[in-house]
Write a protein that binds this DNA or RNA. Structure first.
Length: 919
RNA sequence: GCCGGUGUGGCGGAAUUGGUAGACGCACGGGACUUAAAAUCCCGAGUCCUUCAAAAGACGUAUCGGUUCGAGUCCGAUCACCGGUACCA
């Protein structure tokens, strides 16, 4: 294979600057109170004598899970965007915090360990080293002194510590915030310490519950709702079933309201806010109490958003798991066979004749046996069974049958509904299948058929509600229910508490011990609690965590045993952005002083928090919800100063393969960044990823496009370096490649670059470029910023003499995007200009543009006739409307177009356009 | 189904508050340099029609309609694609 001639020696340049940046800690971020280093370029720029730091800019990437596959081209997309902004803000004079770390607990390392017996710590370490090397090859300006790793005991010590804070807190509904458990007051009827303990444990933000959970047999662990997608595990796509298990839960539902409302404080995309809003799923409505017409008169409470349709409730449905089902079984069964009272389903599972009780049991076990996946797939056909019992509709005293059906979910609302088949599509389908009555109670405004009408209309057949509009009817009926103590206004959320324990080896152990079937916290001085060393990490079929096999670790003196579940992967990522702020603090997870500085406001952001967070959409309802939740607890407890962590957030769009398909090994369309960097260099790679299109957009990879920006960098190189010295270099390199660094250092500046004052055309060119690039970077429009830089180069390349001041400004503009080539060129240019050179371009101040250089003397008016362009007329910028009009009307072209038609109107927009309306 | 987003040349994409549609780049065609190629440099180019050529013209931002002197941009309807969600009462 013939090697193509390089556009410029990017490999030599890039490794040279990586070493310089690393050795000088060029991108160190300065904490308040930290010792200053006067010779550091940051302090050469800023006043070393002052006590206050410059304004901060905290720009964060979603840290990666270091998988065995290494970096793919999707990772550097967001990382490049943030790096550009980090460098831009350094030039603007900010103290920039731009950190990187590893979200390293997780399933793949553990699965690899199960297969090979290699400790996940080893795998993780290897993968991290690969990732770090790959990321460093891209020249990102991270402060590597703040690198965090969630699996490092010095890190997860604080994850466990935060868990203890959560464990030792409760949510006070009166203050609407978390408080230490010590502020909890107990109802007077609780006498014994044991009763109080149970009460207290049920109030904690971290609590243990026996509940049906998402159990994934293939992974051997339970999963949170957020980790289950279409009935399958998010990781691996294995089937998930519901299984009752004793698990740790975090009370995220207590924060549902604040998590929803505080979205208003954030500068996030509309669609992302929408996703969180939908996931939290707030709905306003009422709880209504129905009384079962049985011996014991059980209360059946339902939740509804349409209390106004109460008169149309013709039956009730309980979820198969509903607790009342056993109790409401009537003492005597109705006459006839189950078939006659429709106690069968179409599924063939219950076949009459059999006793009603058996029918119910059969249906319940049928429903229980369905996996989540099956429930989703079978959702089209309704199944159910009549209980034989009836309830009284509180609004009209009518007896309505109580059914059991799995289209009612035990986990939402009260697990029971009033069915209004006329105005609910699911109830309608069910009623039609089982021949239940349908009563119209809402008249559509357009007078159409009310059956299946779901919107707002006018109440009919509804007693005292009849004639009222839906919103008013809702209010009236709920007021009535409250007055008669048969119901009340309430709000329901789809969000459920966060299932927080996992049956895995490779996660943070809970700092919890058990005795006599109750739990307590271990003391903080015992943190970090390390997991035991174990010969094998296999999950078990039963759901018993692997840690349980480590008997020496589990069994403690005095009859105590350790909690053997571990925390989910999300735990570490819930607070890593706080650790970056004070990454090496041994005494606390993050000092107040540092937190106040880095999470405060800046001239850029008037709302406190991280100035910009960039990452993929895949975390829209997982990490981003969990982290906000933890942050709010820490806020309530006084450990952080802001109610929200991520003030501004941008999702980068997916990069597709060259075939416009999602990159995947099976399609064979995966692009490896290492290959691209080897061929074209990191600067070209960075530039291309930003040039492809808007950051948020999904876009396909095109290697030819990399060549395009690579050629651009070659033009930049030749713009600055003398042709003769390049030829010399080429000739020498054919003899001895090892001399490359030395020869590159000796390259001479292009003699066309001179220390002379720029002419007005050159001033205009550079100032309009400064304006455009600055404006584009502020608005994250990297693609158009690059295009503006290309326009400049296309222009400057034609200049016979290139003023050095203009060329330096250009390098400053290109620097955030292509840092290596600009460092190299600045190193040659700055001494040539007899300016002081501090060893890097990174802290040179960002160029300012001056409008006075942009002013035009003439403007070429496009002249339209009836909106169609007919002529262009160049006029002085000062031309008055009258002058413009005269000039336009004397144009031969315009005269010809108008011909004998009459002019209705002439619109003149100064310095923009002229349009003549004729008929 | 519901919610959100996006539709512009052969391709990725530009286009301030409604004001010259197609910047910049890719691919393509032509030329210069070269023994030749690569690299580089210069020129061309939305589509159609007419023409030896040029000029001019017509049509063009998913489709249909509307508002306006003027619409890629605003409004209404439709279609397609992408993402989220799914018996949430």
């Amino acid at each position: 294979m013939a090697t193509i001639k390089k556009q410029y020696p990017f490999d030599v340049i890039e490794s040279k600057w990586h070493h310089i940046w690393e050795e000088n800690k060029t991108f160190h971020a300065w904490n308040p109170g930290e010792k200053k280093i006067p010779h550091h370029p940051f302090w050469k720029r800023h006043n070393v004598k002052t006590d206050t730091l410059p304004p901060k800019y905290y720009i964060l990437d979603m840290f990666p899970y270091p998988s065995g596959a290494g970096l793919h081209v999707g990772h550097p997309e967001g990382y490049t965007a943030t790096d550009i902004l980090a460098r831009y803000h350094r030039a603007k004079g900010f103290n920039v915090l731009h950190p990187m770390g590893w979200d390293a607990f997780g399933l793949p390392a553990e699965q690899y360990a199960v297969k090979t017996g290699q400790h996940p710590r080893i795998t993780t370490e290897t993968n991290i080293n690969t990732f770090r090397k790959q990321i460093k090859a891209l020249g990102f300006s991270y402060d590597w002194d703040r690198e965090v790793n969630t699996t490092d005991p010095q890190y997860f010590k604080w994850t466990q510590w935060i868990f203890l804070k959560i464990y030792n807190s409760w949510f006070n509904p009166e203050t609407n915030r978390a408080e230490p458990i010590s502020t909890l007051t107990y109802p007077p009827e609780l006498q014994s310490e044991e009763q109080k303990r149970i009460y207290r444990d049920n109030k904690r933000l971290a609590y243990v519950a026996e509940a049906p959970v998402n159990w994934c047999p293939a992974l051997g662990t339970v999963l949170s709702n957020e980790e289950v997608i279409d009935g399958k595990s998010e990781v691996g796509g294995f089937p998930v079933i519901r299984k009752p298990m004793r698990q740790w839960m975090l009370r995220i539902t207590a924060y549902a309201d604040r998590l929803l409302k505080d979205l208003d404080l954030l500068e996030w995309s509309h669609s992302l806010k929408e996703m969180q809003t939908n996931w939290i799923g707030r709905s306003e409505g009422a709880e209504v109490t129905f009384i079962a017409d049985t011996e014991r008169k059980e209360k059946i409470i339902v939740f509804t958003t349409r209390a106004d349709t109460l008169f149309g409730a013709t039956y009730m449905v309980l979820a198969p798991e509903h607790k009342l089902i056993d109790q409401i079984t009537p003492s005597t069964w109705p006459e006839g066979t189950p078939d006659e009272w429709k106690g069968s389903t179409d599924s063939g599972i219950i076949t009459p004749p059999q006793t009603p009780k058996e029918a119910i049991e059969a249906y319940r076990s049928y429903a229980a046996g369905k996996s989540d996946l099956e429930r989703t797939e079978l959702s089209k056909t309704k199944t159910g069974v009549f209980t034989g019992a009836y309830a009284i509709n509180p609004v009209n005293g009518k007896r309505i049958p109580i059914w059991i059906a799995d289209y009612v979910l035990s986990t939402y609302g009260t697990g029971a509904i009033m069915a209004v088949p006329a105005h609910d599509s699911r109830d309608l389908e069910f009623a039609q299948k089982f021949n239940l009555p349908i009563i119209h109670v809402v008249q559509p405004p357009d007078g159409s058929d009310p059956t299946g009408f779901l919107g707002d209309g006018i109440s009919i057949n509804s007693g005292f509600l009849s004639g009222k509009k839906t919103p008013e009817a809702k209010k009236t009926i709920i007021d009535w229910l409250q007055a008669t103590q048969q119901g009340h206004r309430t709000i329901n959320y789809k969000l459920r508490d966060w299932l927080f324990s996992r049956q895995r080896y490779w996660g943070e152990p809970f700092p919890i011990i058990w005795k006599n079937n109750h739990h307590e916290a271990i003391s903080e001085d015992q943190l970090p609690l390390l997991p035991p060393e174990m010969p094998d990490y296999k999950p078990t079929q039963s759901g018993e965590p692997p840690l349980a096999r480590a008997a020496d670790w589990v069994n403690l003196p005095n009859g105590y045993v350790r909690e053997t579940n571990t925390m989910p992967q999300w735990a570490g990522s819930c607070w890593y952005y706080l650790r970056y702020i004070d990454a090496n603090n041994k005494d606390t997870f993050c000092s107040n002083k540092a937190e106040n500085y880095w999470m405060g406001t800046t001239p850029k952001a008037t709302v406190p928090g991280i100035d910009l967070y960039v990452g993929g959409t895949e975390h829209a309802v997982l990490h981003l919800l969990y982290a906000r939740f933890w942050h709010k607890i820490l806020f309530d407890l006084g450990f952080v100063s802001t109610p929200e962590p991520f003030h501004k957030l941008v999702n980068q769009g997916l990069i597709l393969g060259e075939d416009s398909q999602k990159m995947s090994k099976s399609r064979g369309n995966v692009v490896n960044p290492d290959d691209v960097i080897r061929e074209y260099g990191a600067d070209a790679f960075r530039l291309y990823e930003m040039f492809m299109g808007p950051l948020e957009m999904v876009k396909p990879w095109n290697t030819k496009g990399v060549e395009g920006v690579y050629r651009f960098l070659g033009r930049v190189w030749r713009l600055f370096i003398s042709k003769e010295s390049l030829t010399e270099l080429d000739q020498n390199l054919t003899l001895d490649l090892s001399k490359a660094p030395e020869l590159v250092a000796q390259l001479k500046l292009n003699p066309a670059i001179q220390n002379i004052s720029p002419n007005p055309v050159q001033l205009k060119t550079i100032h309009s470029t400064i304006k455009k690039v600055t404006d584009d970077l502020e608005n994250l429009r990297f693609n158009t910023a690059i295009s503006a830089l290309m326009v400049f180069v296309n222009d400057a390349i034609t200049w016979e003499i290139k003023p050095a001041v203009v060329m330096l400004d250009f390098l400053k503009l290109l620097q955030p995007l292509a840092p290596h080539i600009t460092e190299e060129l600045a190193e040659k240019l700055i001494p040539f200009m007899n300016l002081e050179y501090n060893g890097t371009i990174s802290y040179l101040s960002w160029p300012q543009y001056d409008e006075k250089y942009l002013a035009e003397e003439t403007f070429e008016y496009p002249v339209q006739v009836n909106g169609k362009l007919r002529d262009k007329i160049k006029l002085p910028i000062s031309a008055t409307q009258e002058e413009v009009k005269t000039a336009v009307l004397s144009s031969e072209r315009i005269k010809a177009t108008i011909a004998d038609k009459t002019i209705k109107k002439i619109i003149i927009v100064p310095r923009r356009i002229v349009n003549i309306a004729i008929n």
